[in-house]
Design a protein around this nucleic acid. Sequence first.
DNA 1: GTCCAGGGTTCGT
DNA 2: ACGAACCATGGA
Length: 229
Amino acid sequence: MTNNSVIEIYYTLLKQYGHQHWWPGDSAFEVIIGAVLTQNTAWSNVEKAIEQLRLSDLLSPHAIVEESHDVIAEAIRPSGYFNVKTKRLKALCEWFMQQGDENSLRKYDTDTLRKMLLSVHGIGPETCDDILLYALDRPVFVIDAYTRRIFSRLGLFSGEEPYDEIRLEIEENLSSSLPGEEILPVYNEYHALVVRHAKEACVKNKPDCVHCCLNQRCPAASVFHPNMV
DNA sequence: GTCCAGGGTTCGT
DNA sequence: ACGAACCATGGA
């Protein structure tokens, strides 16, 4: 990985697509709920689930802990895996309430918070980093399937490396390119741009489509290969 | 009808 | 430490 490759990819994506405005204006709690609901699920379905929670007055940690499994499951049905996700939401909300208010999480450093979140049932590495970045304003680089696919096709990784191996290498590379005060908004925007690009890159979003970012058959190839038509 | 989405847990090897 | 089955809806 060359010295500035990660930030250069960022500037390329930002120039192509502009700002994505991910999770703006929502409360931290709503972002946290969304992070669980969107696991392996299209965001459009998550919006329906959140709206149904809102209409049932279930959009608070206390309500989700107290309400019955079946009522919550029915509310979040559109997001899929509703029985699994109901358990995960309850576990996460119980943890959240045990911490007191949102401000009581500020006293932990990011690595400590990550371990705390990962110990909650239903929170894996990606959901954890979504919460850290988009709800708690921590500077972490979110690794998802799109990130692996795109960075792999740009030759930076094989794509099979463990989650934290990719994350730490990208974070080290990025932080060497930017001062600390400016890195949080870049992490925030970067993941959103990767998702946006992945959707543009391959019409069918096929994991085995080897053309994305590699040749002109990919609709988004010119983003990284300006000389290609 | 088929594929897959802003994943994680559990249970084999 | 790694692989596979499992969970379930809705849009393309």
